[in-house]
Design a protein around this nucleic acid. Structure first.
Lengths: 72, 72
DNA sequence: ACATTATGTAAAATATATTATACTTCTTGT
DNA sequence: ACAAGAAGTATAATATATTTTACATAATGT
């Protein structure tokens, strides 16, 4: 049915950028630590705006943070 | 505060691709025509998943459909 | 002028993202 | 072993996106 899922490499990006913590990333972006945690562990996928904010924070395009790929 | 807003060129893309209608785009992507209309007229911004679906439909990266730019 | 198709407006109902709070577990340094 | 910082689990409350339905307007072809 759905076929595709959204994955992310936020954790990897956090460590490629001077060990930024979940709490600090959340604070910088203006969301809660819970939100970062939930997205990072793929509990749900973010709004487009939040996706843009995260991508902007790491200075990369959205596609480098999130991937829309086949589930199987 | 926020400073940035999300814009889109869905309408332009629809006409660059053989005049695909809102209803047809919605149907192909698996959402309601109202959703396409609301997003196209920036009543609200979509979920990341829907943004991916729209971008995929037009075979372009998300950044070519949606732009996160300064409001002013 | 009429019929048809596409787009816009509106509002209530539902689903999903985000917050807030509190507690737990893991790591690391001392 | 202990303390402190970071990450994980859980849940209720709130905000926002999406659906559904219904009607209104705009554009086009006959």
């Amino acid at each position: 049915m759905s076929g595709k899922i959204i994955t992310n490499n936020i954790k990897a990006l956090r460590f490629n950028n001077g060990e930024v913590t979940q709490a600090r990333l959340a604070e910088k972006i203006g969301v809660t630590r819970q939100t970062i945690l939930a997205i990072e562990s793929a509990k749900y996928s973010p709004s487009l705006e939040l996706a843009f904010k995260i991508a902007d924070f790491f200075s990369v395009p959205i596609e480098e943070v999130f991937q829309y790929v086949d589930a199987a």
